[in-house]
Design a protein around this nucleic acid. Sequence first.
RNA 1: GGCAGCGUGGCCGAGGGGCUAGGCGGGGGCCUGCAAAGCCCUUGACGGCGGUUCGAAUCCGCCCGCUGCCUCCA
Length: 501
Amino acid sequence: MKTKLQIPPLTIYNTRTRKKEEFKPVNPPYVGIYVCGPTVYSDPHLGHARAAVVFDVLRRYLTSMGYKVRFVSNITDVGHLEGDADEGEDKIQKRARLEQLEPMEIAQHYTRVYNMAMAKLNVIPPNIQPHATCHIPEQIELVKRILERGFAYVVNGSVYFDVPKYAEKYQYGVLSGRKLEELENVTRELRGVEEKRHPADFALWKKAPPTHIMKWKSPWSVGFPGWHLECTVMNAKYLGIPFDIHGGGMDLIFPHHECEIMQAVAAWDTEPVRYWMHNNLITIDGQKMSKSLGNFITIEQVFTGDHERLSKAYSPMAVRLLILQTHYRSVIDFSDSGLASAEKAYKRLIYTLKKLDTLEFQGGNVNIELEERIVKHINDFYKFMSDDLSTARAIAQLFELSSIVNQLADKGKTVREVSYEVGNLLKTQYATTLKEILGILPEEEHVDSFRLNAVLQILITIRQEARQQKNFQLADRIRDQLKEVGIVLRDTPYGTEWDIE
RNA sequence: GGCAGCGUGGCCGAGGGGCUAGGCGGGGGCCUGCAAAGCCCUUGACGGCGGUUCGAAUCCGCCCGCUGCCUCCA
């Protein structure tokens, strides 16, 4: 029985070419990945969870293949205006004004919430998590460079990217397939952007209105950087141009990623990215989940069950499995029953993981056909993972193995139908693929246990009720006793936070 | 309107000319003090109408239905 694994080369569906391509790094064995991170002005939702989990698995898989991965994912703590370019207000600034807080307080808070949610989902933190506001000088430099090269113009202290000029020399819309002429018709509805020469032009630097809190000095005005600049600057700085993989949600293809390409090409005459990967979106009852529609479910709500569409609290690992049981380029329609189904399935995979540990593979009466099946399922796991990260099919192999292991386990601890060699391969591969590559852990190995949080939420609620009834003796007792065991409660404008000291 | 995509068994969800996807659920049984888990057996599908083909869920055409992007969002 051959126990040497065959791991085929990874192929990736490249949005840029609209084909599956074999992945070849720019500088092997190093691989640079950049994934667009969150704008930190509200609680992270299931869409964030999906993008994070998908690219976490990509990173884990590449690492398992022996690549040295540098994973960069940004925190957008400025920018992304709402509404018309001229009338719009920075999201974080708006939130800050509403809650009477420093913008950085908002950004800091939601960055923490995001990172905690990611930890619960067992997403490995980025090697670098750069903040947009920490790269203002670099962004100004890039604007200067694009200006010098003639692909931008200044109007009233704001700088705009000159798309028609760009389109004279380079091809427009290489990623989204959009055509410049078609864009004119659509965007004519957006009036009040007189500063722009062409509707497709976009801001590189905006002069700040007097009421604006978040602003920086630049050669053109006191203002703030444009919507798409930070990613170009930060992936160039930390990964170099060109780098290997740029990821994000499909909704970012246009205009965000298209603009990133134009900025980089305008600045350095080089397309910045080899492979563009885009995960599909999440729907709720068949409808897109979005902030503006207000129908989103936050990650935390899933973990606590605190949402009208949820019947109970679900394990982060159930969420992770649910996400991975769908191919990343397909839509996931989110539902309570889907989560329940994923949670059961998760428990089944973990049951097998634990059973497998107790089995002793001794051989002696080897069933060759069974051994062949085992080895085939393991190899197929890698075959499907390498086929554009087909996690759904890969996981199906794990369920096949689960069924085999459970059947063996039913007959007792000592297994004679499978040799020591194949049994050992089964043990190590089942654990490796499930835990290391898919990132699906047993609850108790999951350090950031969501149940601890659930329990604390109960205590926090009880304490809150006590405070409202002016029963401060009880409220303080809860806080003091938690502190004794190393858990700190903090009352903030958004409610009570907890932290481990 | 332009562009992209989808419609698979009770639900979710892979696949994509002949070869078991998988999970959850349902039915029957084993095990068990009860329950749960696990095991065995079982149920069952490719939106509609045409066409290509020896053969179509898979290719082509038309029709019906749904969704996304085109504007901030993962």
